[in-house]
Design a protein around this nucleic acid. Structure first.
Length: 399
RNA sequence: GGUGAGAUAGUCAAGUGGCCAACGACGGCGGACUGUAAAUCCGCUCCCUACGGGUUCAGAGGUUCGACUCCUCUUCUCACCA
């Protein structure tokens, strides 16, 4: 049981510092039912979560399964500085009500994965504000510039002569201080957070709280392209709020290779179960697509429901395997006979008439499942199902 | 503060008076093949009912029959020096 728990906790992790301590904590839990705390920090800005974020959340959920109380920290104070990892120098400060608003929306999304009973949501302004100038000053005496410059990001910027604001030096200190205040046993974060995570250990030692947190780092999840990290700006993400059909389709569009990565980092299946699937595919007794569908269904179920997942699968088969029209498509209407290219733009499935013409020329446009070849085509009064490529559909009513 | 280099379409990056709506790469889209996978191959990739027209190469002026290319100023970025 302990073995199993350890294996699940280590699963997918990029690096663990002080693994022995984690083992001890778990042992104490299994033997005596003693609980412990796991901290993870989040930014209070726009909590628009995608699967990349959920990698961390799921690790937290695993910890909860094995006796942990999660300290879900919303960095409302530290957000004023901005983590140096991002180049963004200054951030706009959020008002108290905005932060509350975001926190609320965090909870809605996060508790689909985490057990709210075993989660404390905390804000770091709560203990950092009372620190005051003198508290802050004593915090800064625990570290020195040379060591601060060891941080990869600072090092590069220092050497290349790019500016580093003093306030950026404060950021890791404050994040570390959070661990002091919260008396965290373990902190988890992305690999890019290593320096900050270690700072927690350092400060816990400096403040003599009688423990040093273990650190578990998770890798950055690749996006749909399988190369770059999943992010909104690269538009290669699966959002936790995505529609079931979208979500299902997006998962199915990843490569077979990437699928195993997603299984490891996102699935709730045990490593043994996954191994069965993998060897099945290797031997040829399982079709990769079936395995991928299973993953897609699991993910849709998690963020929506089992029913939605089944529907999404049916819909997917309907549209793609049997090339039928989706059940649910946007409807538009126009007045009077309309030129096909204009109609496509009107239905928002083409960005411009120029693009629409090209698409027609390339045979990508269909009306009621019939390929259109005449780019001058006029649509008389009636109802049509327009299609561009394989994925874009719209219903149009010409009045 | 001084000196030098640069700013080109989603990104990178050619173009140094007309052949430029602008090479190429990546990305994206479409087609073929498929499992809406990957790989591969082919086509497209500023806008406009279009063998034509319009608006683009940081911004504003200027030179010229003609400028992304030359000149002036402005803004921003980078490198080196202090």
């Amino acid at each position: 049981m302990l073995e199993e728990a350890l294996r699940e906790i280590q699963r997918g992790s990029a690096e663990i510092i002080d693994n022995e301590r984690i083992e001890k904590l778990l042992k104490a839990y299994f033997d005596e039912g003693k609980t412990y705390t796991v901290k993870a920090g989040f930014d209070p800005t726009a909590p628009d979560l995608h699967l990349g974020h959920t990698v961390l959340l799921q690790k937290l959920a695993t910890f909860q399964k094995y006796g942990a109380t999660i300290q879900f920290l919303i960095g409302d104070f530290t957000a004023q500085i901005g983590d140096p990892t991002g180049k963004s120098a200054t951030r706009k400060t959020l008002s108290a009500s905005e932060i509350q608003e975001n926190a609320k929306s965090y909870k809605e999304q996060v508790f689909k994965i985490l057990d709210s009973e075993k989660t404390e949501v905390v804000f770091n302004s709560e203990w950092i504000n009372p620190l005051g100038a003198s508290g802050m000053l004593s915090l800064t005496t625990t570290y020195n510039v040379a060591r601060m410059l060891e941080r990869d990001d600072f090092d590069k910027r220092y050497k290349s002569g790019t500016s580093i604001s003093i306030s950026e030096f404060i950021y890791p200190l404050l994040q570390g201080y959070d661990s002091v205040h919260l008396q965290s046993d373990i902190e988890i974060g992305g690999t890019d957070q290593k320096f900050n995570l270690l700072m927690g250990r350092h400060l816990q030692r400096a403040y003599e709280i009688g423990k040093e947190q273990s650190v578990l780092m998770m890798p950055i999840l690749e996006g749909l392209d399988g190369v770059q990290k999943m992010s909104k700006s690269l538009n290669n993400y699966i959002g936790v709020a995505d529609e079931p059909n979208d979500m299902f389709g997006k998962v199915l569009s990843i490569s077979d290779e990437l699928m195993w990565r997603y299984y490891e980092l996102l699935s709730a299946k045990s490593l043994d179960e996954i191994e069965v699937l993998r060897s099945g595919v290797e031997k040829g007794s399982l079709h990769p697509k079936t395995v991928k569908e299973e993953l897609a269904a699991e993910i849709v179920t998690r963020f929506h429901s089992l029913e939605n997942a089944q529907k999404a699968k049916e819909e997917f088969d309907r549209v793609h395997s049997n090339s039928q029209i989706p059940t649910d498509i946007d409807e538009f209407s126009v007045d009077g006979e309309t030129w096909i290219a204009k109609a496509l733009v009107e239905c928002k499935i083409s960005p411009s008439t120029s693009q629409a013409r090209r698409d027609i020329k390339q045979g990508a446009v269909k009306i009621n499942q019939e390929k259109v070849s005449d780019e001058q085509l006029q649509l008389p009064v009636g109802e049509y199902v327009l299609q561009v490529g394989k994925r874009k559909f719209a219903k149009l009513k010409v009045n």
